[in-house]
């Protein structure tokens, strides 16, 4: 691994990381359609799902659709996993996806199975999620993910999933 360059200009570090993240996210039409975006602090990602009427699954309560919650969690897990997998390459200056080059969308992990625990009904407001890669091997990975709305400690849902890592 190449040694870290302590003197690397901050704007270059930020633009490298932001552009790699943008390439991961912007390549997926479904993320754009749901309105999901990612906030980055160093290597920590927080997924944001801004509220929209089309996300509603129970108009009486009203509550966000359980499928939307599952999709939000699964997406957060996949992006976190792909992001964590390319971090080393990105920081050591090896080739990484570039948002400016639309020709080569990055390969994403494939979901093997995904289990969602619904803890509270989703309110008609913004939701947030963070994923943690519990174990990432050469072929398989296990990821845990949590979503919340107003209070970080009051989870809306949590999930665990297993993923097949892209090969080659």
């Amino acid at each position: 691994m190449m040694p870290m360059d302590r003197r690397e200009p901050l704007d270059r570090i930020k633009s490298r990381r932001d552009s790699a993240l943008a390439a991961l996210v912007s390549g997926v039409p479904y993320l754009t359609w749901l309105g999901i975006r990612f906030d980055r602090r160093g290597d920590e990602l927080t997924a944001i799902l801004p509220y929209e009427e089309k996300l509603i699954g129970n108009p009486m309560l009203p509550a966000i659709h359980g499928g939307v919650t599952a999709a939000f969690l699964e997406t957060t897990a996949i992006i976190e996993l792909a992001w964590a997998a390319m971090w080393e390459d990105m920081e050591s200056g090896r080739t990484v996806p570039d948002a400016a080059v639309a020709a080569s969308p990055p390969r994403l992990p494939k979901t093997i199975d995904f289990t969602v625990d619904y803890l509270r009904s989703g309110l008609p407001r913004d939701a947030y999620a963070r994923a943690r890669v519990v174990r990432s091997g050469r072929r398989y990975a296990s990821v845990q993910v949590e979503a919340w709305q107003d209070n970080r400690a009051r989870l809306m849902a949590q999930a665990t999933g297993h993923f097949l890592m892209p090969q080659g």
Partner: peptide, 27 residues
Amino acid sequence: AEHLVGDPRSGVVHGGVVSALMDTSCG
């Protein structure tokens, strides 16, 4: 539909779409 695609390389819909359909049919 194009906007539901999760893997632009293959045009396959995102797993989340399948989740939403499964959840609705189960309900």
